[in-house]
Design a protein around this nucleic acid. Structure first.
Lengths: 235, 235
DNA sequence: CGAAGTTTTGATTTCCATCAAGCCGGGTGG
DNA sequence: CCACCCGGCTTGATGGAAATCAAAACTTCG
């Protein structure tokens, strides 16, 4: 078993405010893990045996309904926690996590959670800050879904994605992992057909460029305008 | 200034696991407060000066969009925390809270939050458990909004309301606070017209009885059937 | 090259928002 | 005490946004 260096996690929000010896102690019980593209890190409703930090790659968090429909809840970028069911007082994972590219994660046994939270209070605090910000995010998403048209929702979704995972290219800002029309549809509660039509429409207007599992936003500011009220002109 | 009795909060989930002296200490800095129907307890985007526990009544938590549309995020029942912006690392309230009937709340200055969380670890833990369960709730709601038709969403909404705030009557289980078609519409992302049509339809089938700001579910089990897939028969 | 997965595009349908009145009940003030 | 008014509710008609149905084109990869 090889040793993990504390520099792996030292800068991450979750481990802010911990001294070196604490970091080392925490890493003692971690195992690192490669996950290849399309592989699951954990499955919805299965026993929450571990919690994780994503070190490299991109992870899709997806919830499935009993009748097989899927909703993409969020994408995880390096440095973020995932699978923190324990922090929510749960014993099973509420969603599945899929590597959308090859990933590296650190994993800790879930039963260590309470120990960590008490032994390293700032770790507990940091985690709960994460949970809190995810609560805010998702509340915003509920408002969006309740009040906006599909076009605006998809526009907002793309803007969020390039903000979180955008890479500047000479065409514009591209989403730096493979994402299909279907994925975008599952994030916005619509269908791949509608997403496809919207993207081709926007492409004609020069707002985006897109291809197979790939989207580039050419003019974020004009897309923002679309994302706010197109139709209904407010006061 | 009169003294608050510890029995007010002793049984509440948020204060589970605290000894009497801690409860007394916590109550020292609380002030109790009557809020009359339709009055705001706090306003969205205003400075998060306090956090609260609802002792009696019902509170509607509502988020407004810049263009004035409203979304009812949840209803709070006695014993629950509200306005815990601090726990989420926020300095302003993310939503407004309105008393839907006359209410009694306890209030603490927001700046006490960090002190409480460190001085009474189980209070911190309990709060975060609350935050976690609200995260789960709202994720379920996102899935619902993304995958279900309006009829199913409204049915689920009523079932949730009677579960949380139902009172058995001789007609069935009634939602024990005034709630309008508009309120239900704002919880489910639809319009009061559609809610009205659904309720009259259900009334004809004997599933519910409803009147002005008042809904009774006569047959919860049959409503549940509706709430799952009516149309689309799954495998 | 063939096959599987992804995307596009057209045609049709359906659900639900919107528009538009009118109704009902209760509270207020003349 | 009655009339009026206001807030909430119902109900019909209409239109439009987006789902569904259907099929073809394109991409990538083994």
């Amino acid at each position: 078993m090889h040793r993990l260096d504390r520099s792996l996690i030292a800068g991450l929000p979750a481990f802010q405010g911990l001294d070196d010896s604490s970091l080392d102690a925490i890493l003692q019980s971690a195992s690192s893990l490669r996950v290849t593209k399309d592989q699951a890190i954990f499955d919805q409703d299965s026993d929450a045996h571990s919690f994780f930090v994503l070190l490299d790659g991109r992870v899709q968090v997806v919830k499935s309904t009993p009748d097989g429909q899927q909703v993409v809840v969020r994408y995880i970028v390096p440095g973020e926690l995932l699978g923190i069911a324990q922090a929510l007082g749960r014993t099973t994972y509420p969603a599945s996590a899929i590597a959308v590219v090859d990933c590296v994660v650190l994993a800790w046994p879930g039963k260590l959670w309470p120990e960590f939270a008490t032994a390293y209070p700032s770790f507990g605090m940091n985690t709960y800050r994460t949970v809190g910000s995810r609560l805010s995010d998702i509340q915003a998403q509920v408002v969006e879904m309740a009040t906006e048209q599909v076009e605006q929702r998809v526009a907002h979704c793309l803007l969020r994605l390039i903000k979180q995972s955008g890479k500047q290219t000479n065409d514009g800002i591209t989403i730096d992992f493979p994402i299909s029309r279907q994925d975008i549809a599952e994030m916005t509660g619509t269908t791949l057909h509608t997403v496809s039509r919207l993207l081709t429409g926007w492409e004609e207007k020069g707002l985006v460029k897109s291809g197979r599992q790939q989207v580039t936003v050419v003019e974020p500011s004009r897309l923002s305008v679309l994302a706010e009220g197109t139709a209904r002109d407010n006061i």
